[in-house]
Amino acid sequence: MREIDTKQVFTKDANKTYGLMELVKGTKPTVGLQPDDMVFTWPHLLIRELVLFVVVTAFLLVSAFFFDAPLEEIANPNHPPNPAKAPWYFLGLQELVSYSAFIGGVLVPTFIVVILMLVPFIDRKKIGIGKWFAKERSFANGIFLTFLIIMLILIIVGTYFRGPNWEFVIPWETGGLH
């Protein structure tokens, strides 16, 4: 429920007099909002969706003409590549698996999913909503940003800095990225 704003909505004109004419009670979503905060979905939102659709489609078509999706030789169960790598979004986990199968394969992914599910029940204070990186919530934002950066680093290490037998390699020294 939104708090009903008891402050001034309009700036008062000094040359006019004001009086209470009517009291409207209600629980509609518009109560307590600035009078001009809402706009019609048609055309304001729909035109934006249409533009995004055109832009995304055009971007994909152009990318598709210039960059080919990878296709290697036919699958051969007898010739494993060294190293064999999972899809990129799992390479952070594969990197952790190289230290401990239990930590990377079980503990961390379970922990991530459970914590993500519980986030809105851990942090329920209605402060700093509707604003990017609000000061009031810098602690929560800091934790989440750290988590994202750690995952990103692990994925980058797994993608570019791991060579044969999952040994550490410097990509620009061994020639070519894998």
């Binding site: 296709l71 290697e72 030789e73 036919i74 699958a75 790598k85 999972a86 899809p87 594969q94 394969g105």
Partner: peptide, 16 residues
């Protein structure tokens, strides 16, 4: 696509 990339990525992924 059933190429080497696909086959071994799924082998590794499912072993996790």
């Amino acid at each position: 696509p059933w190429d080497q990339l696909a086959f071994w990525a799924i082998t590794v992924g499912t072993s996790i």
